[in-house]
Design a protein around this nucleic acid. Structure first.
Lengths: 280, 280
DNA sequence: CGCGCCTTTGAAGGAGCTCAATTTAGGTGG
DNA sequence: CCACCTAAATTGAGCTCCTTCAAAGGCGCG
C-alpha cells in the first residue's frame, strides 16, 4: 500500500492543505499564484511534479507502468494548469485538445439544458481524469468547474494516443480509465433510476468516503467541497431534499453533519440503507 | 436539439426483417438457425459478413478506416455469435474477453441490485458496440440481453488492442466509440436527474427515431423491441407511468401507439416537450 | 383457441418538490 | 475586531407528480 493510512486533519481548508504538504508544495496560499513553470526542473519541489515522482501515480494514468515507461509519460505531461475555485477547466463546446489529470483540488462536471437546468454528471478528485467526453467529437460536451483552487496536468490527447501506440501498458491503463468511467456512469444511472432519496445520499457518502480513503485520508471524516444544490443535481434531488436527508441521518445517529463537514458514525448502518428498500 | 442524439438506444420488429433484407441475409425466420459459418466464404450472403462488406461499417468500428485497414479488421473479427431472444450475450461477473458489434437484432444492458431491482442502462441497435464495461476489470459489470433473435461479431479485446497499436485510425475510432458511450451516459443522467416523465419519454422516442433513421429506416414509424417495464427501468419510471405517458401523447396527437408499434405524428411537438418544462 | 404475458386504465396514497421563512457561515470593509 | 452582507443550509407546510395497488383488456404463441 503506497498510501499509508493517515488521518487527515480537516481545518477550514482541509484536504487541500494536507495534499500540498504531501507533494512538497508550498502550502502558503499567498504564493500560490506564482508561476511554477518558470522554475521548473530547478527546485526539488518542481521535480516532484513529474508523474514518476507523483504520489498520485497509483490512482492515475501511470498505474501499472514500469519505471522507464512512466519516464516517457513525463515527457508528454509537460504543462500544468491552475484553475481557481469556480473557474472552468473547459466548457461544453470548447475544442478538445487534451485530457486532464487532477493534481490538487477537485472538480465537478455538468451538462446544461437549454432552459437552464443543470445536471451534475460527476465529482472528480485527485488522480482522476477529466475530459474524456471530448474524445468522441471535436468539442467537449460538458463543463468542468473547479470546486476549490485546483491544479491539473495537461495531457495533449494526440500525443497520448501516439504514446499509447508504443507503450502497451499505457494503452491498457488508458482503456481501463475510460471503461471505469462507463461503469461509474452505470452506477449513477442505477442510483438515479432505481433508488430513493436516502439511498442515493447514502450511496454518495459511501462513495466519497471510499475515495477519500484511497487517497490516504480518513474514510470517516471529510469535507465536502460541493454545495447541497450540486449534490442534489448529481443525485437527481432538490437541495432541500438533500438537506432533509442529511438531517435524518444525523437524527438516526448515522452521521454527524456540520454544513460541509461530515463525520460518518455508523458506516454499516449507511450500507444497510442501500440494501433494504422497497421501490421497484 | 443535439441533446436528444445522445440519450438512448433501441429497436423494433419490422426493422429486423428490413435489416436482414439489407444485409442480403435470408429473411425467412425458419432458416435463421442454420449454421452460417459452415458455408462461410462460399455464398455471396456470407461474404457480406466481413467488415469490409458490411453495410453497418459506417455506424460501427470500421468507421473512418481506409479499405486496407478494414481488411485487417476482418482478420480480427472472425467469429460471430447468435443470441436468441431473451438470451444473454454476457452476464455481470463473466470474465471479459471480447467486445461485440451488433450485426442484427438488438440488446438491452442492465445492472442488478442485490434486492432484485434492475436498472436498464441502455438499448443497443445494429452497429453499436457492447461490452465496453468489461475493459475496466477482469469481468463484465452488467448483463447484455437480446431483445430479439440477434447476431453479434465477436471482437477479441486483446487482439483489438494489438491492432489498434498498429492502425492509428482504428485506435482513434475505438476511442471515439468509448467516449461516445460516456457522452451518451451523461445524456441519460440528465434525463434521469432533471426531466419529468413525459420529457423522458419524448427524449426516448426522439432518440429512437433518430437512430432508426441513421440505419435507413423510417424516423416516423417503428417497432419498439422492449417492454414498457424495460422502457420504464431505463427512464427511471414505473411501467404504468410509461403507459400513461404514451396514452397522453396519443390523446394529444403527438404519436400513434399500438402496443409496441409507434408512429410519430408530430415530431416538433415532441421536441417542444423537451424545452418547455418547469422542474429544476 | 386458450393461456400467459404485456398493456392499459382507474383510484388512492406518498415521496419528493415548491414556496417561504429563518438560521448559519464565510467573506468584506470600516 | 466587529458589524455587515451575501451565499448556503435548514426547516416547515402544502401540493404535485409519480407510484402503488387493483382489475380488465389485448396480443401473440403454442
Amino acid at each position: 500500500m503506497e498510501f499509508v493510512a493517515k488521518i487527515a486533519k480537516f481545518d477550514a481548508k482541509g484536504v487541500d492543505v494536507d495534499q500540498r504538504a504531501e507533494y512538497g508544495i508550498d502550502t502558503d496560499r499567498g504564493t500560490e499564484n506564482l508561476d511554477m513553470k518558470a522554475s521548473f526542473a530547478i527546485t526539488p519541489q518542481n521535480l516532484k511534479v513529474a508523474c514518476s515522482q507523483c504520489n498520485l501515480r497509483e490512482l492515475c494514468l501511470p498505474f501499472g507502468l514500469a519505471a522507464h515507461e512512466v519516464d516517457r509519460l513525463d515527457e508528454l505531461v509537460g504543462a500544468r494548469r491552475k484553475v481557481k475555485r469556480q473557474g472552468q477547466l473547459y466548457r461544453a463546446g470548447d475544442s478538445f485538445e487534451a485530457i486532464y489529470a487532477i493534481r490538487t483540488g477537485s472538480f465537478k462536471t455538468d451538462v446544461l439544458l437549454e432552459d437552464g437546468r443543470e445536471q451534475v454528471t460527476g465529482f472528480q478528485m485527485t488522480g482522476e481524469i477529466l475530459g474524456l467526453d471530448g474524445i468522441s467529437g471535436e468539442n467537449h460536451s460538458c463543463n468542468a468547474t473547479a470546486l476549490e483552487d485546483s491544479e491539473v496536468c495537461v495531457i495533449p490527447f494526440a500525443r497520448l494516443e501516439e504514446l499509447s501506440r508504443e507503450v502497451e501498458s499505457l494503452q491498457r491503463q488508458f482503456h481501463k480509465v475510460m471503461s471505469r468511467e462507463i461503469v461509474r456512469d452505470h452506477g449513477v444511472m442505477m442510483l438515479l433510476g432505481s433508488m430513493r432519496a436516502e439511498e442515493r445520499l447514502a450511496a454518495f457518502l459511501l462513495n466519497m468516503s471510499q475515495r477519500f480513503m484511497a487517497r490516504g485520508f480518513s474514510a470517516a471524516e471529510f469535507h465536502l467541497r460541493m454545495t447541497r444544490d450540486e449534490i442534489g443535481s448529481y443525485l437527481g434531488l432538490k437541495l432541500e431534499t438533500v438537506s432533509r436527508a442529511f438531517s435524518k441521518f444525523q437524527d438516526e445517529g448515522l452521521v454527524s453533519v456540520q454544513q460541509k463537514h461530515i463525520r460518518i458514525l455508523d458506516i454499516d448502518g449507511l450500507k444497510q440503507l442501500l440494501v433494504r428498500c422497497t421501490r421497484n
